[in-house]
Design a protein around this nucleic acid. Structure first.
Lengths: 178, 178
DNA sequence: TCAAACTATCTTGAAGTCAAGACATATGAG
DNA sequence: CTCATATGTCTTGACTTCAAGATAGTTTGA
């Protein structure tokens, strides 16, 4: 194991496995455990911003996906739940909440009568434009906790891993109704 | 942005924000989005192993925490839910499921009549000892998708970030009853 | 043209999680 | 010793998510 300045929770876990199961090489738990634990802690921190704006992380994701798709800020539920890696039923519920808050609107899809399209309202657009600014600043502050060179290195190597995990022949399927 | 061999989903998101909100520097979304997206995909893959053994990821976490604490494989619910970053209510439910499966047992705590201690049964010990071996091999196979030097770099820099995120003055509180 | 296969969405029921608070016990200041 | 406060666990109710399947509309191939 590489020497580090400060031990983290994962170091403690690895030390315990080493003591209890010296026959195992548990080292893969290091990077993978750290990714998952960082993710959990990040979600907690970023969630504080979202509640400031009266929304959940999931709602932010939907609004942000619509916003960055560009005018007229209109996508199908299918496009949304595929992008967000959630099931169609979950998307139905999220859209109900967002619609009840007046942040999105469902408009008929003239191309396909099976589906409605989901469109950002002016209030939704205004909200996500403000929220994303605060969100990015929060993220920037978090990354400022470590060296800029570490941030760059993380980005490069995480991208390599993510590219592999996203390969269609590796990925587990998402249930969208069949 | 650093050039990479293959674009991933986060590259696409950053490009969309660049087009729609050129006034924002969304670059912090890169590393943070990749951590969270890798984590989601990893959870999905690792979950397949757990269901092979008839358990959920959460149940694996509890059994593994007890196992690596060493003989007599006995911890308080408080110690478990603090370690696992979940609430006390969630732990109550997990322990009920684990107890119903015969993998843990609740024994009286002579030191503190408010609490029972949770102990791995022989069946639970045998199960987690087999499951953790498969789990580690799955993790090893995933990390083998990228260069060994990338794995090492990831580990070092994630540890730096995790250490910062875990500092008590930064962390959001966990609700355990007050 | 028509039926079979496919697709997009929603519904339903089960499971897991959390926040808040109830309850019993423990601790410590006086 | 006693009471106020702190602590550990469980309960409750709401919310979110998922898997499976129902429903309605679309596409394809003969």
């Amino acid at each position: 194991m590489t020497d580090r300045l400060q031990p983290d929770a994962v170091d403690a876990i690895l030390a315990q496995w080493k003591r209890e199961r010296p026959d195992l090489d548990a080292s893969p738990m290091g990077p993978i455990g750290r990714i998952m634990r960082c993710s959990a802690l990040l979600q907690r921190r970023l969630g504080e911003t979202f509640s400031t704006f009266g929304m959940s992380a999931g709602e932010f994701d939907v609004l942000a996906t619509l916003r960055r798709s560009g005018a007229p800020y209109c996508l199908s539920p299918k496009a949304l739940f595929s992008t967000l890696m959630i099931t169609s039923g979950t998307m139905t519920h999220r859209l109900q909440r967002l619609e009840a808050n007046g942040w999105v609107l469902r408009v008929p899809n003239s191309q396909d009568a099976r589906s409605m399209l989901v469109q950002l309202t002016p209030a939704g657009l205004e909200l996500i434009d403000r929220a994303v600014e605060v969100h990015i600043e929060t993220e920037r502050a978090i990354l400022a906790l470590i060296e800029p060179t570490s941030v760059t290195a993380l980005d490069v190597h995480l991208s390599a891993l993510l590219s592999e995990l996203e390969r269609p022949d590796c990925e587990a399927p998402v249930k969208g109704g069949r």
